[in-house]
Design a protein around this nucleic acid. Structure first.
Lengths: 338, 338
DNA sequence: TCTGGCACTCGGCCCACGTGAGTGCCAGGA
DNA sequence: TCCTGGCACTCACGTGGGCCGAGTGCCAGA
């Protein structure tokens, strides 16, 4: 087991390395921190920490840098979450309050998060599966052509074109619309399939085929759109990644563009509470030299989506976690209000 | 005036430099191209081209590289547009044909363009101002709360919440919906204000306020949403920019994230035909070391939006222009079909 | 007007060297 | 048992000199 002081040494190493981006040596450590012991003692501690795999030496004659395992310990045991200052909080609120619609909310959140953390921000749109139906609309664009519009409680709108084999009367249409709405408005998307299951049976023989088609498109929309959307911003911050970054930045940019990859990443994170994945803990190859901090956000108690940042493993974890948590909180508030 | 052979030398320089990314010397030129003259002659030509500002030397003892002015001449006079191969065309069509909705079309187009050109792709969503109304829907979410949904011929959907001072009857609502649709469906957005101007007068005194509110929100939507949207992809290709790219890539990423900047850029391009802006021809500072190739696309004869790529000034202009033009054409077809 | 020849330039590469931060180890002291 | 100061060692990095070669400009001759 590591002694108290050795943990303190690790904390100091992480803090200094995050600040300077340079391997930190025993002498510099004792100068910058009140450890109460001499460099030689620190050296012994460092040797122990290295044996345990928490820190490593880039070259024999250089200082130490934390390993992924070291950061992990730091995050789990040594670092708190740094709360934002009052002006920062106020700025967040002001900035987000100006949003006019869902796209705007998400867009502003991405910018905000990227600016606050100086890293790449990722914000997932409120998920359809976890949200509820606000309204369903059916429009006849042509006698045998319908449009289905689905509006969620988070303000998201999905539309689908439907080609029917047979024309669908205006009265049948109104009927279907009314019944659909009465059944599913206010209900969760996940519950919809069950709720509409027996709907075709209550229609005239002639209309059943069309009603079934509409329902299947509706259900399809629910399933398809469960493939979530997200917005990414602050990629310019990648240029502050490190010195060697041509090699580093490339796979990261590629991963960020593959929204599927990012969604999987978010999916792997806890639904509630903050998740920090450090370096090789990230399954995706391109992200093994990054850390990902994510947290769920939602309009109520429950998270409807996640947001977070992607940055170098050498990041200011307490600060980043503080910013991510604060932003998620305010976004939740905004969503609840709208 | 530049002689035929000197133009040929310039062409050769551009081609070689684009291929190798290295300053090209007189000897290498004569070896790789059948110019029919000796290196010494080429040297004289190069000196002339340098005097005129078409090429430059990075260092005294190095070969020449084209200047922005050189690329300009190359694009205007020396380069054609390289048509895509049949398999490439087929691949484009297959890829785009799979799209299910507008977002998907734009998303696929961005990917396609980025992959084909190995550069950053920018695709503008079909603009509202130039498109026409397919349908307007009014929904009562609550007695005094309406939702306006606007559907364009390009498949775009905009929705707005409307709070009314007084409740609005179901019959009045149906009436307004019907009248609105009969007046503006199929019309261009730009014409809408005129077409609905006198609508409130034909309603009962009680409803006029609400009708006016709805109309003003409708018009507002038209105006606000004229602020166009765009999608960007292929930023990972920036890493192939050049050797010195930490400095180069940063401002480019920043510019790309500022959609306003990119929209302005697209706005400055010609509405029809292809526009190539080379290096310092781009007004935005961050893009002075890039070239931007754009072209309008649309479902009919007229362009409804633009798309293009951003790459290093040292790019394969004929190939890029060919790809951009081909993609624009196919996207236009897809939009026309849907 | 083109060509071959020639002297010149200069960036890139290699190597050698000195410097200094940092280390590991050890013996002595609390 | 743990901490400390001392000491020899390692090695990345920066500097400076020297060589190399691609590329140039110029010039005289065809």
């Amino acid at each position: 087991m590591l002694s108290e002081r050795r943990l303190e040494v690790l904390r100091a190493i992480v803090q200094d390395y995050v600040g300077t981006e340079e391997p930190v040596g025993s002498k510099a450590l004792t100068e910058r921190h009140q450890l109460g012991v001499s460099p030689a003692t620190v050296r012994n501690d460092m040797a122990a920490l290295e044996d345990e795999g928490f820190i490593a030496q880039p070259h024999t004659s250089a200082g130490r840098i934390p390993t992924d395992k070291g950061y992990r310990l730091f995050v789990d045991k040594l670092a708190g979450v740094k709360p934002l200052s009052v002006p920062e909080r106020r700025a967040i609120q002001n900035f987000l309050d100006g949003a006019v619609d869902l796209d705007d909310v998400v867009g502003r959140t991405v910018r905000l998060l990227a600016q606050l953390t100086r890293q790449v921000a990722v914000v997932q749109y409120p998920s359809l599966t976890r949200s509820t139906v606000r309204h369903v609309e059916l429009l006849a664009l042509a006698p045998a052509r319908l449009m289905l519009v689905l509006i969620t409680d988070t303000g998201r709108v999905e539309q689908r074109l439907i080609d029917c084999q047979t024309p669908f009367g205006e009265t049948s249409l109104a009927d279907l619309r009314a019944r659909l709405n009465s059944r599913i408005v206010g209900r969760r998307f996940a519950d919809v399939p069950q709720l509409v299951q027996d709907l075709p049976e209550s229609f005239e023989q002639d209309d059943r085929a069309t009603v079934s088609t509409v329902l299947s498109v509706l259900l399809e929309t629910l399933v398809e759109e469960t493939e979530e959307r997200l917005m990414i911003g602050g990629t310019a911050n990648l240029t502050r990644f490190g010195h060697d970054f041509p090699l580093t930045i490339r796979p990261v940019l590629e991963a960020l563009e593959e929204h599927v990859v990012m969604l999987k990443l978010l999916g792997e994170a806890k639904d509630s509470g903050m998740t920090v994945r450090i370096g090789h803990e990230n399954a995706h190859e391109g992200l093994t030299s990054t850390s990902v901090v994510t947290v769920g956000y939602g309009s109520g108690d429950e998270a409807v989506a996640k947001l977070g940042v992607v940055g170098p493993t050498r990041m200011d974890y307490p600060g980043t976690m503080g910013a991510v948590r604060a932003v998620a909180r305010y976004v939740g508030q905004i969503l609840a209000e709208s």
